[in-house]
């Protein structure tokens, strides 16, 4: 049992980290009332930028390259998400449609530039990805050490830390209160002097930054190169985590960890006695089936922010 946990937990953390980052982005955006189907596209953009930056500057920054890569990917993700913000906040576009367009655009741009810069459909493998490390001191603890602190990607802990920061920002600061107010009842928020458009822009841009971070972490830990099939569905799974976590940062983190658990079971499930006989497909579709069940109210009702998806038009009731 302990052996299983020691091989399972690092894998769960490994698969969950990108989902946690991206889902937190989704929480910010949706809490402010902007539906973000475009999380997938934001991850694609993050993965593309992360890989290209890493390939180009690996010689310059050495072992710091992956960290600087995810930072740059996050910045570009934030800039890219402004398109979604402009369309859905300022131009009153249908937010779902705009999100779908973001997904198509990101993949189009990513693969187009990959072909132009590298003359082929996929980039080379990066030389400076994230590596598994043992965390000093903590990994020496018997029992818990090997489970949680040996052969771990540091990014997994950064992701969990971010979830707590996001929770603090959303629930313990005036900024968070305003952001949530704008998502629940924009007119009331506006009457109280909150700039609805500004809050929504900030929220969408935050989701772009976190989505870019998630995509680049996924690319630099799990796949190590960029092609059209680098990000296939992780963004939608993050969206599922947002909903399964009931639009709460810690809930989203929990959901992302759970989905990561389901994914790692489908990878290493063959080694676990009880799960050997379960066909892999059930583990693959589990996150999606569970999300539908959660929405249907079988696992506690998930209610969206009241004004989610509605453009705010000043003066209209």
């Amino acid at each position: 049992m302990i052996d299983i946990l020691q091989s399972l937990i690092p894998t769960v953390l490994f698969f969950s980290a990108p989902l946690i980052f991206t889902a937190l982005g989704g929480v910010f955006s949706e809490r402010s009332g902007v539906v973000n189907i475009g999380l997938e596209g934001l991850m694609v953009m993050g993965a593309f930028v992360g890989i290209v930056f890493n390939l180009t500057f690996a010689d310059v920054f050495g072992s710091w390259t992956p960290w600087i890569s995810i930072l740059v990917a996050s910045v570009i993700g934030a800039i890219f998400s402004i398109i979604h913000a402009v369309a859905s906040v300022s131009f009153n576009a249908n937010q779902v449609v705009s999100g779908v367009a973001i997904n198509m655009l990101a993949l189009g741009i990513g693969v187009y530039l990959t072909k132009q810069w590298y003359d082929k459909g996929q980039t080379d493998m990066v030389t400076e990805p994230f590596f598994r490390t043992d965390i000093p001191l903590l990994s020496e603890i018997p029992l818990i050490g090997p489970m949680f602190f040996q052969g771990i990607y540091t990014t997994s802990y950064v992701a969990i830390l971010f979830a707590f920061i996001a929770w603090y920002v959303l629930y313990k600061t005036p900024f968070g209160l305003r952001l949530r107010a704008v998502g629940e009842h924009p007119m009331a928020a506006d009457t109280n002097g909150i700039n609805v458009y500004k809050m929504r822009y900030i929220a969408v841009i935050l989701s772009g930054a976190l989505g870019g971070l998630g995509g680049s972490v996924f690319a630099l830990t799990i796949v190590s190169n960029f092609s059209h099939s680098t990000i296939v569905g992780q963004g939608f799974m993050a969206l599922a985590a947002v909903i399964f976590g009931k639009w709460h940062p810690l809930g989203a983190m929990g959901a992302a960890l759970f989905f990561g658990f389901a994914q790692s079971l489908s990878v290493i499930g063959g080694n676990i006695p009880l799960l050997e006989s379960v066909p892999q497909v059930f583990l693959l579709i589990a996150p999606y089936v569970l999300t539908i069940l959660a929405l249907a109210g079988f696992i506690g009702r998930a209610d969206a922010p009241r004004a989610n998806g509605e453009p705010y038009i000043k003066g209209s009731r």
Partner: peptide
Amino acid sequence: PTELVDIIIALIIF
């Protein structure tokens, strides 16, 4: 690259 068309279609949707 063929992906130019994907970019064009995405922009048309926007």
